[in-house]
Design a protein around this nucleic acid. Structure first.
Lengths: 341, 341
DNA sequence: TTGTATGCGTTATCAG
DNA sequence: CTGATAACGCATACAA
C-alpha cells in the first residue's frame, strides 16, 4: 500500500512482473539487458509516470543529484548570469542547483566548504572566481570525489574542469581600439590583487600599449576592487593629474560607472573629454548615459557550459564536448571617441 | 566498518553504549530523556563530530532539508538581494537553498512546480512576486504539505506565510515629496499588469495626487514592465506631451534609468527640467548621474525574514516571530528638485 | 526512560 | 541475463 502518490520502483517491478533490480537496470541503462524485458519495463514506467526518488537514490549512491554554485564574488550581476546559464543547462535534467556563498576572507572557508561537500554529497560544483583560482579548494574537491568546473580568466585546468574566457586578448583589442582612436594617455583602473581576471586584463592592457610604443607611467594605473566606489576613487586619482588621461580602461563595468560618475563631477564630457571602456557588459553598461563601450563577457554561456560539463555523460547519453574557452567581444557604444586635445 | 569518513548514528550509539534510538532522541531534542544519558551521548557526538546524514534523514522523513527559492522575476538584482537575505538566514542552519526559476507564461508552470516539489520534497519554498500572487501555486504548496512564504507588496496572507512591504504608503509619501517640491504635472511609469506591486504603487501615486487635488489625466500614465527599455519607451510617450510633465515617478529603478536615458536624449537636465523618483534602490540608483532619488525596498530583509519564517521552530528552538511587514523608505538623492517652469 | 524491529526507495553483491 | 537479499543512515511504532 502506497502512502504517497508517487509510484515506487516496487510498483513498477510488481506490475511488470520483474524484480526491483531489473527495473533499476532499466533506469540506469545497464547494457546487459534483454531487449524485450527492457521495453516491457519501460512501458510500465511510462504508464505509471514513475520517476526514481532522489532521496533514496542519494542515500544508496552516497551522492546527491545536486549541482552546487560556489562563489564569493563581488559582482551580483555576474552571479545571476552564471546562475541563469547553469539553470538553463540543468533545466531538462534531474539535477537541481544549490547556491553556496563562501567568504574567502574567513579562516574557516575551507572547512566550511568541506563540511558542505561532505554532508550534502554534491554531484558537482561550479566554482566562480576568485574562489576558482584557489588550488586548495580544487584539491578538496578532488579529495572528496566531487566533480568540479572552474570559471576562470585564463587556462587554469584541463578542458573537463574549466570554462575560461580570453580576457587578456580581448582587453588588448579594446586598448588597441582606444589607441586607434588617437589616445596616447590612457589610464587603467585595475581589478583587485589576487584576482586572476585583474591580472589578465591588466596584462592585455599593458601589451597593447607596449606594442604601440606608448609609455605607461605607474601614475596611470589605479587599483580598484570591482566596486563602484573603488572605480570612483581610482578615477579621481587618475583625473587629477596633469595632463589628464584622455581615455580610461576600467577592468569592470561597475568600476567604469564609478569612473563616469567621477568624470561628471568634474564636469567632464564623455567621450569628448574622456573616453571610457569597461568590462562585463552588465546591464548598467547600456543603461548609463552615454552608453558604455565595453567587453561582453560570456558569463551566461560559461555557466551553461560549465553545468553541462558537470553533468556530462550521467544518463549514459553520449557526451557532446562543451567548449572550454568562451570568447569575449568588444561592444562599441558611445563612451569612446577621439581625444579632443 | 565505516567506508566513508563520516561517523554515523551507529558509531555514536556503539561508543556511547546506547541504542540508535536514544541517539536519535538526543538529536531531535526529545523531552523524555534522562539528563545523564543525554549528556553522555552529546559528549560522544561532539567528540566524533557527528552530524546526521541529510540524505538518510530525507528518505526517512520524506522531507528534504532544502529551502526553495521560486521565482519568475524580471529583476535580477532583486533576486540576488532576496537570495542574499535567505542565505544569511540559512547560514547557521542545516538547510541549503535551491533555486528554481519558473516561467509564468508557460502552460506547464504549475505542473513543473508540482513535479519539483513532489520529487525534491522541499521543506519549504520562498515565493517571489509575481508568482507569490498566484493562488493556484499557494494551493499547490498546501496540498503537497510544503511550507511557503510569499513575498508581496500588500497583505496577501497571514503572518506565517508572508513577508510584505508597504508599497502603497511609501509611494504616496514619495509622490507627496514631489508635490511639496512644487510639481503639478507629474507622470507615472507604471509596472506591468497583473503585478500586485504595480497596482499598489500606482494606487499610492494616485492617492497622493487626489489628496492634493491635482488632476491625473490618463495621458500622464504610461505602462511599463519593469525593464529599462519599457521605461525608456514610456518616458518618450510622457515627454513628448505639451506641456511636458515636470516630474515622473517610475515604479522601478530600472525603468527610472530608462526615463533618465530618454530625458538625456531630449537634452533635458535632471532635475532642472525633469525630476525623477524610482523604486527599489538597486545599485544603479546610486550609480547613475545624477544619483536617483528612490524608494528603498527591503528585499534583502524580506528574504532573510522569509527564510527564518520557513525554518522557524525546526530545531525545537523557541520561535522568535519574524516581522511580516518590512517598511520601505524614501531615499532622497539628487534627481529631484523644484520645477523650473 | 530506553531498546527492538521495521520501513523509507534505491543501488550493490552475489548468487542462479 | 535476472533475482533474492543485504546495505545506505535515520525515524517511527511498539515494547519493555
Amino acid at each position: 500500500m502506497k502512502k504517497t502518490g508517487q509510484p515506487t520502483i516496487n510498483d513498477v517491478a510488481r506490475i511488470a512482473g520483474v524484480s526491483k533490480k531489473t527495473v533499476s537496470r532499466v533506469i540506469n541503462r545497464s547494457s546487459q539487458l534483454n531487449g524485450e524485458t527492457r521495453s516491457k519495463v519501460e512501458e510500465v514506467i511510462a504508464e505509471l509516470g514513475y520517476v526514481p526518488n532522489p532521496q533514496a537514490r542519494a542515500l544508496a549512491l552516497r551522492r546527491n543529484y545536486l549541482i552546487g554554485l560556489v562563489h564569493d564574488n563581488p559582482n551580483a550581476q555576474t552571479i545571476m548570469n552564471v546562475q541563469r546559464g547553469m539553470l538553463e543547462a540543468l533545466h531538462d535534467s534531474e539535477f537541481e542547483m544549490v547556491v553556496r556563498p563562501l567568504s574567502r576572507g574567513s579562516p574557516t572557508m575551507l572547512d566550511d566548504l568541506r563540511t558542505f561537500l561532505e554532508r550534502q554529497r554534491l554531484f558537482g560544483v561550479f566554482l566562480m572566481p576568485p574562489i576558482s583560482e584557489n588550488d586548495a579548494i580544487v584539491k578538496l574537491c578532488v579529495e572528496l570525489g566531487c566533480r568540479y568546473v572552474r570559471m576562470c580568466s585564463a587556462v587554469l585546468d584541463d578542458d573537463e574542469h574549466m570554462v575560461a574566457s580570453n580576457d587578456r586578448e580581448v582587453v588588448r583589442e579594446a586598448t588597441e581600439y582606444l589607441i586607434a582612436q588617437g589616445h596616447q594617455r590612457i589610464g587603467l583602473v585595475a581589478g583587485p590583487h589576487g584576482f586572476r581576471s585583474a591580472k589578465e586584463r591588466r596584462q592585455g592592457f599593458e601589451e597593447a600599449l607596449a606594442a604601440a610604443g606608448i609609455p605607461l607611467p605607474r601614475s596611470l594605473i589605479a587599483d580598484g576592487n570591482y566596486t563602484f566606489e573603488s572605480g570612483l576613487v581610482a578615477a579621481e586619482r587618475l583625473l587629477e593629474q596633469t595632463p589628464r588621461p584622455t581615455a580610461i580602461f576600467s577592468s569592470s563595468d561597475t568600476m567604469a560607472a564609478g569612473v563616469m560618475f567621477a568624470a561628471r563631477q568634474r564636469g567632464l564630457d564623455i567621450p569628448r573629454d574622456l573616453s571610457i571602456i569597461g568590462f562585463d557588459d552588465t546591464p548598467i553598461a547600456s543603461q548609463v548615459w552615454p552608453p558604455l563601450t565595453t567587453v561582453r563577457w560570456p558569463s551566461v554561456s560559461m555557466g551553461r557550459s560549465g553545468a553541462l560539463k558537470l553533468i556530462a555523460g550521467v544518463d549514459g547519453g553520449e557526451v557532446v564536448p562543451e567548449p572550454s574557452m568562451l570568447l569575449s567581444t568588444l561592444v562599441r557604444r558611445a563612451s569612446v571617441g577621439p581625444p579632443s586635445r
